[in-house]
Design a protein around this nucleic acid. Structure first.
Lengths: 113, 113
DNA sequence: AAGCGTTATGCTATGGAAAACATAACGCTT
DNA sequence: AAGCGTTATGTTTTCCATAGCATAACGCTT
């Protein structure tokens, strides 16, 4: 039987989860689609849930990651702030580094025979 | 706001999760209490669930980690095999190493300001 | 003024994982 | 032979995270 070391990483503050895989993908979708609702639709997530995630991130960040507008020609929308782009980059760096770590640490599992 | 890198690790086979934190604690409790049911009680877990976890581990291991007996003076019981003890040690090693990794990798999160 | 797509937010429904319950068999003890 | 605590396993119930629905407000367009 072949074993692999698997794992997850996320970034927490005292209030709970700040950034995780799903949250960061959501931020990317908001960046790419220009609205929370289009982002949610693109990943089969309810708008309600997507909004709550953004809200949760904002309650844990000194500066907002997403700026929203209501009304207007397109009904409104959302764009990422500098801090939003930074959060994406920062998480993916930790994520990729961790992925490599897991891969490297799979070898010692040979002890399980 | 202070951020920390958090994470989980577990060991998978092609069939799914083989060893994780809860499973290994369960193995330790079985070792310490001498039965699956006492182990489950000691950690507020239903016997049904504990048994399923042991069953899942066995379906993923060439050699069993737990040996059980039914009947007898104490009604039966369970003891760890050599492979069972080995699994515990192997997981904790990976777990502790990973814990150190997370701690080390928290510094770069300063980028989030 | 009416209509649209969006943000924002409360309330309800649902589905899957875990708990809880139920039963049978086992083999010592009394 | 009856009783006990255990393993083993099927069935039902509970709980909670997420989805889903419903509504209001916003500000362009027509």
């Amino acid at each position: 039987m072949r074993y692999r070391l698997k794992g997850r990483v996320w970034i927490e503050s005292d209030e709970g989860t700040f950034l995780g895989f799903g949250r960061v993908v959501l931020l990317e979708r908001i960046r790419d689609h220009g609205s929370i609702s289009a982002a949610a639709r693109s990943m089969n997530m309810s708008y309600r849930h997507a909004w709550k995630l953004v809200d949760s991130m904002h309650r844990q960040s000194a500066t907002p990651l997403v700026e929203t507008t209501t009304g207007g020609k397109k009904g409104g929308g959302a764009t990422l702030t500098k801090a939003g782009h930074n959060a994406i980059a920062c998480f993916w760096q930790a994520y990729k580094h961790h992925k490599q770590y897991l891969s490297d640490q799979t070898a010692p599992l040979e002890l399980l025979k």
